[in-house]
């Protein structure tokens, strides 16, 4: 699974993208966020305010209950501020 980080999520995690293989019981967006939070202090800090995080699966906005799989591209970012 490919993960992408944007804006302050990139700053806080120190990563713009990475490949991860979460355990099999990580099957939804919400479960992925919880798993990521446990990977270290920088992830716990970056993901501490869930309301401030938006997730896209394969370039489409996703909800916590949406499923994820090993071939998905999952992006984490704050609410958008373009225009």
């Amino acid at each position: 699974m490919k993960l992408l980080y944007f804006a302050w999520l990139k700053t806080k995690t120190g990563l713009s993208e990475e490949d991860v293989s979460p355990p099999e019981n990580v099957a939804t967006v919400g479960e992925l966020l919880t798993w990521l939070e446990g990977r270290g202090p920088e992830f716990a800090d970056a993901l501490s305010d869930r309301d401030a995080i938006r997730v896209a699966v394969n370039q489409a906005f996703a909800k916590n209950s949406d499923p994820i799989g090993p071939n998905d591209e999952v992006a984490l970012f704050p609410p958008v501020t373009g225009g």
């Binding site: 944007f6 804006a7 302050w8 700053t11 896209a56 906005f61 992006a75 970012f77 704050p78 609410p79 958008v80 501020t81 373009g82 225009g83």
Partner: peptide, 24 residues
């Protein structure tokens, strides 16, 4: 719709340093 759905983020440079703009 662009303001709330298109994935762009603004980083502002000010005297106080660089800061990500919060969504309104």
């Amino acid at each position: 719709w662009l303001k709330t759905k298109a994935p762009f983020w603004k980083l502002e440079e000010t005297d106080a340093g660089a800061q990500w703009v919060d969504a309104r």
